[in-house]
Design a protein around this nucleic acid. Structure first.
Lengths: 264, 264
DNA sequence: AAATCTATTGCATATTATAAAATATTGATC
DNA sequence: GATCAATATTTTATAATATGCAATAGATTT
């Protein structure tokens, strides 16, 4: 009876289009060409209906039918559409748009950094309600070994990219050996550290580098498992960097949501 | 009366889906976010109809609506769909897997681009050493006339595919004639240039377009001698783009090795 | 503050998607 | 080579649903 009873979410659309798009999405998630019957089973829709949808998708090139087997697969049109979407999608900006929300939810200062010629570079930052002295302006580059952000870069970028800077920081640290006390100050020490970071999925620093400030950082990954960007949360309370803190969970969720590879 | 008399070609589909997909395709070809009214004008459909289609597209994530302006654009769902479609083509996967090796061997940043509606689009990239062009990332589209990648596309794709963009770039260049000084800024000049590229098998640009950056690019060909993808190497040292440099040889070998593959 | 433009929502009607069954096509078995 | 089984496609009557008009809400400009 009531037009909106079906699903609370889907408002003001067209039913047949919604189900048709579900078919398309299912075909995409399948990861391979499917027969009509397989697809109709997966979507839990009558085959005859799915067939009509697929015919229309074929007209537009979004789907192609393999001549002999009769199976259906995504077509050139889907590639072109995706590339068009990719081309005008400024991922830095979309991520940055969500940054205030993260800062507000966690009550911490949030940073968005990308890799630049001289290390991780701050491109956006969002301070939280709790005011905080900060020398972190846009364009600031952070150290590789002694910042949470840098440590994520270390761990999620190819070594050839970071090696030059790592070596230079190591030289600097050799002159003040007591600075870096949670990592062996050598190339192999750095490698071991990176492995540990990748296992946990994030990096953190307590107040030893910047007294009074603690930070956790996690990567936004592309499908090559490399860091497109790094999100960092900065606060004053050491408890925020403990594993399983709510800040941690929110950071993890944020990064997952903004990584391109996050389907489902 | 008869249900199939309307259009001889479109058989056995669903009318509303066909028109809805036409809307989607129009939005893709537009190359930018569009307002409802613009889109309905372009499709020659009543705005209210288009609006309902867009609502459904939004449910699936294929389209997103920009909060303030209310304009509609392709969304994350379109990206995922396109990437899924790309992944079905074996050549992309096999080539992409080998890309890190090429980048490491040459010490240069390596790009894998495929042709999209708005020009060659970066699908994978593997950075190297300290070189970082922040304006270059996944989904970046490169110019046809003033990039090594684009010049390969010019030369190894049918002219009907590229003509539209060539003309638009030529118009742009006519206003700054001194930009393009190694090619005649006309359709015939472009054709002559393409012949020369095909003879050599690669294209290159020195630092004149992006100061300080040099690039060489070569095609990965299908059985019709057309480019299904373009591999580009980017560096800072002008010597790398000299013919017979080791980078050249490695690029040529790489493209040769990956051109044979595919099919069946 | 009024006006104009644009996007969004309700509602009655007819167009159009739907489902069941029939038919065609392919693949396998004897 | 012919028959059977399985899957894909087409047909057709029915009723569900997309449509278009008109009204509302929202935003930007004068």
């Amino acid at each position: 009876m009531s037009s909106l009873s079906q699903k609370g979410e889907a408002a003001g659309g067209i039913q047949s289009l919604d189900t048709a798009l579900r078919v398309l999405q299912t075909l995409g998630l399948a990861g391979k060409a499917l027969s009509l019957s397989e697809l109709s089973r997966l979507c839990d829709l009558p085959a005859t209906k799915v067939h009509r949808y697929l015919a229309s998708f074929s007209h537009s090139g979004l789907v192609v039918q393999n001549g002999r087997s009769g199976t259906y697969d995504l077509g050139q049109g889907a590639i072109l559409l995706g590339l068009a979407a990719l081309a005008r999608h400024d991922f830095v900006n979309t991520t940055a748009d969500a940054l205030p929300g993260l800062a507000e939810e966690t009550g911490l200062t949030a940073l968005l950094c990308v890799w630049g010629n001289s290390g991780p570079t701050v491109v956006r930052w969002q301070r939280s309600t709790s005011l905080m002295v900060t020398s972190l302006g846009l364009g600031t580059t952070l150290p590789l070994l002694t910042s949470a952000t840098g440590r994520v870069c270390l761990s999620y970028l190819p070594e050839v990219v970071t090696r030059h800077l790592v070596e230079s920081e190591l030289r600097r640290i050799k002159r003040n050996p007591n600075i870096l006390d949670d990592m062996k100050a050598s190339l192999t020490g750095v490698r071991e550290f990176a492995v540990a970071v990748r296992e946990r999925g994030f990096a953190s620093v307590d107040g030893r580098f910047i007294p009074g400030l603690v930070a956790i950082a996690a990567p936004i990954l592309d499908w090559q498992e490399q860091a497109q960007a790094v999100i960092t949360l900065i606060g004053t309370d050491p408890r925020t960097i403990e594993p399983n803190s709510t800040a941690h969970q929110m950071l993890a969720e944020f990064c997952r949501a903004h990584s391109i590879v996050n389907q489902k």
